[in-house]
Structure formats: structure tokens, C-alpha cells
């Protein structure tokens, strides 16, 4: 079952991503005022949706880990955080590339930009914690940080919203209505990104599971060797 689904998912991802690329560059209509720069939207927005979804899964998996202490939930939390940070980085890099020609500035402390950046910072610190903590307690510490991060997000959102209304900026990120074709292209790309995220998470999950098995076996062997030596 797994052996067959994995390549199918891989082919599906490749098809969706190449079709999405074609549609984004050629198929979709050119935006009236922004021109071709707007096409980065087809990568920017779907990446953001994917990243937020992955962070959501990370939060749920962390809560499940705290309740059940299941290793699988911990590994899911780990891989979704890793892949989520990658997608979030794509969002934070493509955003300024678009903003510079359209808004005239690379960055502004707008509500969405700031919330995304803070989310990225929280999850990078999450990954650093996982790297630095001593192995036995890593899952627990990471789950606690994930919950603190999730509690933080609404507070960040409200604080920035008020911050902006206090200091109005010439930049307005209002969207207005969107051409149905444009939305369609964005959704195709999103489907491609989701399949790709699934694929990466899946292989990372299996790798991590094997890695832990190897570590366990090595620890067990070391224990048996020391017994024999005695």
C-alpha cells in the first residue's frame, strides 16, 4: 500500500507543480496595474496557506503528544514544523520581492507581514530548542513551546492591528476582487504545494522513525555489550 501510494503522490506532485507553473507564467491573465510582478502571488499565497496549515497540524500534534505521549505525534510535530518553516521562509522571501516594485518598499510593519515574521521566529526557536535539548526530554519541551507559540499568535495579531491603526502608513494592502482565473491558478498551485509538503513530510517522517529505531538499537546493543564485558 505505502510502496504504491508514495510514487503515485510523487507523480501527482510533479504534474500539479508543472501545470501550476505553466498556468502561473502563461495561463493566468496579466494584472492591470502591477503587470507581471503580480505573478509571484501564485507562489506567495499558496506557500502561506501551506505554512499556516502545517503550523496548525504541528499545534494539534503537540497537544496530542502532551496528552498521550505518543512518539508518532511527536514526529509529526517535528516534520510539520520543519517543512512549515521552509514554506514560511518562501513567503517571507517572495513578499518583499513583490513589495519593492509595487509598494516601493521592501518591508513594512503591516499586520500580516509582522504576524508571519513572528510566527517564523517562534518556529525557528522551536527547531533550535529541538536541536539543543538533551534527547530524552526534547518532545516534551518542544510540545510546550508549540503551545506557547500558539497562545502568542492571537496576541501578536491584536497588538499589530492596533499598532498599525495608531501609526497609519501610506501602504494599503487591500485586495479587492480577484479574477476567477487568477484564483483558480492559485488554487492549483496550492494543491501542488500541499502534495509536495505531504511528500516531504512523509519521507521525513519515515526517516525520523528509522533514525529513532537505529538509536534505540544502538543504545540497546551498547547496554548488552557492557553486560557481557562484566
Amino acid at each position: 500500500m505505502i510502496r504504491r501510494t508514495f510514487p503515485i503522490l510523487g507523480v501527482l506532485t510533479a504534474v500539479l507543480l508543472s501545470y501550476g507553473l505553466y498556468e502561473a507564467l502563461i495561463g493566468a491573465p496579466t494584472e492591470q496595474s502591477m503587470g507581471d510582478v503580480q505573478r509571484i502571488f501564485y507562489y506567495h499565497a499558496p506557500s502561506a496557506w501551506t505554512a499556516f496549515l502545517l503550523f496548525g497540524i504541528n499545534f494539534v500534534a503537540s497537544v496530542v503528544y502532551l496528552i498521550q505521549r505518543s512518539i508518532k505525534a511527536d514526529i509529526i510535530a517535528l516534520v510539520t514544523a520543519e517543512v512549515g518553516v521552509v514554506f514560511c521562509t518562501v513567503v517571507l522571501v517572495t513578499g518583499p520581492i513583490w513589495a519593492r516594485p509595487v509598494w516601493g518598499i521592501w518591508w513594512t510593519w503591516d499586520i500580516r507581514l509582522t504576524s508571519t515574521l513572528v510566527l517564523w521566529l517562534i518556529y525557528v526557536s522551536y527547531l533550535i530548542l529541538r536541536r539543543f535539548s538533551s534527547s530524552g526530554q526534547t518532545p516534551l519541551m518542544a510540545a510546550v513551546i508549540a503551545i506557547f507559540g500558539a497562545l502568542d499568535v492571537p496576541l501578536v495579531y491584536f497588538s499589530i492591528r492596533f499598532f498599525r491603526t495608531q501609526h497609519p502608513q501610506p501602504v494599503i494592502g487591500g485586495e479587492g476582487s480577484i479574477d476567477p482565473k487568477m484564483l483558480q491558478v492559485a488554487l492549483i498551485n496550492w494543491a501542488g504545494f500541499l502534495c509536495f509538503a505531504c511528500l516531504v513530510c512523509w519521507s521525513r517522517y519515515r526517516l525520523e522513525l528509522l533514525q529513532r529505531e537505529v538509536e534505540e538499537t544502538e543504545a540497546l546493543e551498547a547496554l548488552l555489550d557492557s553486560r557481557k564485558a562484566q
Binding site: L121, I122, F132, Q137, G149, D152
Partner: peptide, 27 residues
């Protein structure tokens, strides 16, 4: 208390504390 269980814990504390504290600091 959490960073007690990590390597190089003196560095770990600000790395964990600052991102979470952003809304409080801003306020």
C-alpha cells in the same frame, strides 16, 4: 526552567523568550 535541560542553556533562554515576548514588548 526549560532551558536547564538543554546544552548551552545561557544562550537558549533569550532564543526562546524573545520571540514569544514580542507582543508584550511591543505593548
Amino acid at each position: 526552567a526549560m532551558s536547564l535541560r538543554t546544552r548551552s542553556r545561557e544562550i537558549m533562554l533569550p532564543l526562546l523568550l524573545f520571540p514569544i515576548s514580542i507582543p508584550a514588548l511591543l505593548a
